[in-house]
Nucleic acid binder design. Structure first.
Lengths: 348, 348
DNA sequence: CTGAAAGCGCTAACAC
DNA sequence: GTGTTAGCGCTTTCAG
């Protein structure tokens, strides 16, 4: 027992208005070649019946769905969800719908079913918003060549022949360390994110390079690896303080770990920024309310998302218009230094 | 110049296998009435061509898309994105795709285009995951009756004839206040969320009721209204301390405001939990690393999402199977008290 | 067991 | 200007 169809069809509108479906089609698509009276009559029927054309049927015939596939992971973390939010806003504005897939784990490499699900629903393009971790990009150049649907990748190392949009983590890291140096700190340690993350590797590289270029030695005992969480920050800082006792400042690879660090510092009676300066990364909302407020590197995820959506739509619509295909390119976006109290070394 | 179709069609598979499209259809749908040899031959061709049936075409003919519409708002905040994450996991498990819409603002009442977009794409059901705020639910009972597509609402006040899944904020609030009372605090203030939020009203009602039932007076000067942010917590606590000087504990309506409160308390030299006990709400990840760690009420957004997805699928599939329609019902989920240091009053 | 015909809701191409 | 025919990719009758 199937319930009655929820929506009016073009056929019903046509017969109610006493015209052919073709004419209805012309009216709802705003084509010029309909007489004003007919148009009016049809529009009234459309209104009265609450007729809504089926995007599905249109997608089938036009071979174009006006839908983007978005693949994400770790939505329960603030970074990925901010990115996603930026994507929804930009897609809405561009008139595209979004089909969402979330990988169960960041490092998930079981991507075929994801692509299949997206492709079987005829998405016009895919935004791969999963950060590059470990081997989770190995497949990028092994995608079937006949998969001629554009993909834009977020948060990964730029590569030939693919489209990438990323925050410039290296530039951000350099800013963080330079700022600490300018404040007069001379023994700057680092707490990195998990080093299988590309972003974490960029940040630690920036720390190393900046120190070396300024003439400082960088030893292995000067840094430790965390896992992005506050708790890891709290536990690894203990080790770092022990193995690098002369340390007077730390560049911490994200704000959450910095929070853990600050907790331990308080417990140990270390004053921030007097005894130890701290700079984080991300500029999460709470960081302005840490004790003391945290100096950090702001990455603007909204811009990343906006650029990614605009990029993929440009590629899609160029293909559709039969223009020359847009060449894949990488876009790196700059970060901003937000100076707060945790790094303002009192001038002695 | 249209590029060649990216995917093989059933027709191509059929002619390559030397059978009718019908037979291919039977094979890919696992129907029994195909001879083993034919089946094998078809499967090989399917494999070789990488054939993937079009979910779009299927949706059209079956009048069933296996797609859920999800409407959310404020994805950049942690609550909504955790909810969404739970929905993606549950939907994936159930074999449903997700079409995502994010309202630009929580209080957005411009919902027609949202429904139109989802309906035109033939979603089988809608999960309305926007919290109830101000007038943003006025339309619930005015939806066109012929919109016979199931909707499950999250985070709203239970109402007749609609399906709702919510955390029991009232029960959570009662637990928070009872805990403070048990700890021996006797002058318990409250910092509420914005009172146009249903969830905030539930929490403040729980605070009032619990105190009154225990025989305490509740005066207007005993509470102030925040806006969920750490900064608002920091600013309203000043006012509250002034107008309620004998206050020895606070139930703060979320963890982020509690963070702001703690910052100010430190500055004023108030010891937590000795001079003032604090209980938050939400159990955000960071709250375990506040100084001191924050006692709070945990709401399990994953369960909410899971229940909501299961509920809507039950409704959808009952309708599809021609069973009696499932009656709309409300589900309220209990919270858990997480005791940490901010509320552990030293026994004198 | 298999195929032919019809059609889901819509639009492109052509007639009139 | 408007209607007719055909068909997007698939599945559901119904013959055989």
């Amino acid at each position: 027992m199937r319930q009655k169809p929820s929506r009016a069809t073009i056929k019903e509108v046509a017969s109610a208005a006493g015209v052919s479906t073709q004419t209805v089609s012309r009216v709802i698509n705003g084509r010029p070649d309909v007489s004003p009276e007919t148009r009016k009559r049809v529009q009234e029927v459309v209104e009265r019946l609450g007729y809504q054309p089926s995007a599905l049927a249109r997608s089938l015939i036009r071979q174009r769905s006006h839908t983007l596939g978005v693949v994400t992971a770790g939505l329960k973390y603030i970074g990925p969800s901010r990115i996603l939010s930026g994507i929804t806003m930009a897609a809405e504005e561009a008139g595209y719908a979004l089909l969402l897939k979330e990988l169960p784990r960041f490092e998930d490499n079981h991507i075929e079913p994801i692509f299949q699900a997206l492709i079987s629903r005829h998405v016009d393009g895919i935004i791969w918003a999963v950060p590059e971790i470990g081997e989770n990009r190995n497949w990028v150049h092994q995608l079937p060549v006949d998969l001629d649907i554009p993909i834009v990748y977020l948060a990964m190392n730029p590569q030939e022949n693919i489209s990438v949009v990323s925050i410039d983590n290296y530039q951000g890291g350099r800013m963080a360390v330079s700022h600490l140096l300018e404040q007069g700190y001379r023994h700057i340690g680092h707490i990195s994110g998990p080093l299988d993350w590309w972003e974490a590797r960029q940040r630690i590289a920036a720390w190393k390079d900046t120190l070396k270029e300024t003439g400082f030695e960088v030893e292995d005992r000067h840094w430790v690896e965390g896992n992005w969480s506050s708790s890891s920050g709290a536990s690894v800082i203990e080790k770092l303080l022990e193995q690098y006792p002369e340390m007077d400042a730390i560049f911490v690879a994200n704000d959450q770990m910095a929070l853990g660090v600050m907790q331990v510092a308080h417990q140990k009676g270390l004053r921030i920024p007097e005894d130890i300066g701290i700079v984080g990364f991300d500029n999460i909302v709470e960081s302005a309310y840490f004790l003391p407020s945290l100096t950090t590197i702001q990455q603007d995820q909204y811009t990343v998302s906006k650029v990614a959506v605009e990029e993929i739509i440009k590629i899609i619509e160029a293909g559709w218009a039969g223009l020359d295909p847009i060449a894949p390119r990488s876009v790196m976006l700059e970060t901003t230094l937000i100076v707060r109290n945790s790094s303002l070394r009192p001038t002695t």
